[in-house]
């Protein structure tokens, strides 16, 4: 059976199974387990209604539990064992990591990524949002800046490989250098330290559109009176933007910032495609992939370090969500 056909059959089984489960379980609950008849129909109905939410939630909870909750515990547990999982070595993997210069490079680079990419994307997105909202062809411009969202990280990396290529007849950067009179082409991907920033540019290019779309909606939600009052008070356009408008959307800016931060900690594709982690560009997710399939203990330890970095954001998100629900 061809995989595509297998996929179609799976869709049928999956969708049919889900619909069947929800329908049958619901029917079973109402007709057989707690029928609205017999000695006390009222009590049966309220019992059925108490069970029903869990019926609806069960498949999602099972999937979430198995694919996201269990791995957190499972990964931590696995990270306490050695390469083949045979013997318990406590925090051995973590002390090994701390002693590995490659890990420290990855951690340092990741720190740079976390500092630079969200800041640059949010800032550029904010500028793009404010500017495109003020012109008639703004929506087309938005569309173009937003487009990289649809492109895979691998595709985006290839696109930028063409820009960075080490030949003046292919790479735009070297073509511009040649136009300015520099003789030898440079390989920007191999310049120590700064190459990381060239890789970051790819993710910034992708994420600016996301920031722009959300911040543009937030900017449009600002009450006109505040801006009118600022104009009457004689504020110039820059003062109005940075002192009146931006402070009113800080909440949204923080959301955009944290969303991109989380993403930065997950993306291994760009480094993997562009340099394979060479030339000192390693980051934690790609460092982890270099141990995947080779040393599960080490790989899970790196994954857990990433989890620890994400943890504060997670807690903050949960607190935020609980505040909103009240």
């Amino acid at each position: 059976m061809s995989p595509l056909l297998q996929g179609m059959v799976t869709i049928l089984i999956g969708v049919g199974g889900c619909v069947g489960y929800f329908y049958a379980a619901n029917l079973l609950l109402d007709r057989v387990i707690f029928p609205p008849s017999g000695r006390d129909p009222g009590r049966n109905i309220s019992r059925a209604n108490a069970v029903r939410p869990w019926l609806f939630l069960a498949p999602a909870m099972a999937a979430l539990g198995l694919y996201l909750v269990y791995p957190v515990v499972g990964s931590f547990w696995r990270s306490l064992y050695n390469r083949d999982g045979g013997s318990f070595i406590g925090l051995g993997n973590y002390t090994d990591l701390a002693a590995d210069p490659a890990f420290r490079t990855a951690l340092f680079n990741n720190l740079l990524w976390v500092l630079v990419v969200p800041a640059a994307s949010t800032f550029l997105g904010l500028i793009a949002a404010q500017l495109t909202d003020r012109i008639r062809w703004g929506n087309i411009a938005k569309s173009m800046i937003f487009m990289p969202m649809a492109i895979s990280f691998v595709g985006a990396s290839l696109i930028w490989k063409f820009v960075y290529a080490n030949e003046a007849d292919i790479g735009l950067i070297n073509a511009i250098r040649a136009g300015l009179g520099f003789q030898d082409p440079i390989d920007v991907i191999q310049i120590p330290f700064w190459n990381t920033f060239f890789l970051m540019a790819i993710l910034i290019w992708i994420q600016t559109g996301f920031a722009m779309v959300i911040l543009s909606a937030a900017l449009r939600g600002i009450p006109d009176e505040t801006i009118e009052a600022a104009i009457l008070d004689g504020a110039n356009p820059f003062q109005i933007f940075f002192r009146v408008m931006v402070p009113q959307i800080t909440g949204t800016i923080v959301v955009v910032w944290t969303t991109i931060t989380i993403l930065v900690l997950k993306v291994f594709d760009i480094v993997y495609t562009m340099t394979g982690g060479n030339f000192g560009t390693q980051i934690l997710p790609s460092y982890m992939m270099s141990y995947m399939f080779k040393d599960d203990g080490r790989a899970t330890a790196v994954a857990f370090v990433i989890m620890l970095i994400v943890l504060p954001v997670m807690v903050w998100n949960i607190l935020q969500a609980r505040k909103e629900m009240r």
Binding site: V69, P71, R78, L265, A303, N317, R322
Partner: peptide, 23 residues
């Protein structure tokens, strides 16, 4: 449960790879 879903939104995929592959 809603808070749990919000929390799970940000769990790094990397954590899931090894345990789930073994599973």
């Amino acid at each position: 449960l809603i808070a749990a879903v919000v929390g799970l939104l940000v769990v790094p995929l990397q954590l899931a790879l090894v345990p789930l592959l073994r599973l």
